[in-house]
Design a protein around this nucleic acid. Structure first.
Lengths: 207, 207
DNA sequence: GTCTATATGTTGATAGAC
DNA sequence: GTCTATCAACATATAGAC
């Protein structure tokens, strides 16, 4: 690497003279394409076209297609794991902690929407996918525990199974990935307000 | 093939001596595999293996891979369209009609889970997928109209956008496809009871 | 209704020059 | 950091025998 005007790992810098990518930019474009067409339907040739370089040049930045997926899934899972770890250790009553986990999940979803979308669509077709699914299942268990605690303190109905409630709760949140688009008709704030209202305050007007 | 114990089009009859499939059975196995691995990740070779026949034998029953998808998507879309058509014309107040649409969607989801799952995972990678997505968008509009009518009669809060509420409402219902498994720990009845409770009665105990 | 053999294209990935 | 050229594997689909 030269001393002046080096390319380096400035992950979010704009493109240089023409090609000349760094790994972070290649990953970003790749994950966008994976999300748009699906991982399996996206070929390395399509990525090359989007990047404006040849297929083989991609392999200078990443060792394989599935490794791109691994890195993307990790960038979704790591912050999600932090959200549930924080929620489990947070102060306040259980309903507040559950609400915090929902809000935190929403925040990660907005910040890492493409990676989270990939995570939610996994089918277990490779070791990379299976490993990510296992980490995701741990998050599901944390969610069920939060609901269970809220039931124990009386802030969530006892006639519903905690794990089933947790699945629907985060299923609702995660359904955002299927239609939310930054810059679209719906803002992050409106989406968050609406999902929290439905799940915690209820659709029906309070008398 | 002998005259007695004929194969015919008895779509749900058990397998004969050995292979000898009809189209309906081939479709069922194919759609199951598509749902399990994803459409793109499922090759005709994998279908052949699951069916116990050769790849080329599959083409005796279906003209192409994408045609299997088309038929599967149609078997999800047709009953869903009927649900929303019925809901729009049903008697009763708007909240009842909305509730009916949710219940009807749940019923279709349980009866046609694999096909509905395929429908929800489309990315628009072919003409078949694009056409199905267009039909699906019409359902989304019907859903928003039902929410809007419920707001007009005062049974749903007015401070939330009807289309956003509709997306979350059916996003919650559709999230079932990601975890519900027939014969698993959760029954159809419990799933339906839980989702209706969360969405219409609220998570918090009523005083 | 199934088979074997094959046509034809695309895939992810590598070798090695510049 | 990019390129051209190439590879083996696998994709969907067809031809024609039984």
């Amino acid at each position: 690497m030269p001393s002046i005007s080096s390319p380096g790992a400035t992950s979010s810098g704009a493109k240089r003279g023409r090609p000349g990518y760094d790994q972070a930019t290649v990953l970003k474009i790749a994950v966008q394409a994976f999300t748009e067409f699906g991982y399996d339907a996206t070929s390395m040739g399509m990525l090359a076209e989007r990047l404006g370089i040849s297929k083989s040049a991609i392999y200078h930045h990443v060792p394989s297609k599935v490794e791109i997926l691994r890195l993307a899934l990790d960038s979704a899972l790591t912050p999600l794991e932090a959200v549930f770890s924080d929620a489990a250790n947070a102060e306040g009553d259980a309903l507040q902690r559950l609400r915090g986990a929902v809000s935190g999940t929403l925040r990660v979803l907005f910040e890492q929407q493409t990676s989270v979308t990939l995570l939610l669509r996994l089918r277990g077709n490779s070791e990379v996918e299976l490993a990510a699914m296992q980490r995701r299942r741990a998050l599901d268990r944390h969610a069920a525990n939060l609901v269970s605690a809220a039931q124990a303190e009386g802030s969530v109905r006892l006639d519903l199974s905690a794990s089933t409630v947790a699945r629907f709760l985060f299923g609702t949140v995660n359904s955002l990935t299927e239609w939310y688009r930054p810059g679209g008709n719906v803002t992050e704030e409106e989406a968050e307000r609406t999902v929290l209202a439905i799940l915690f305050d209820g659709l029906v007007p309070r008398g």
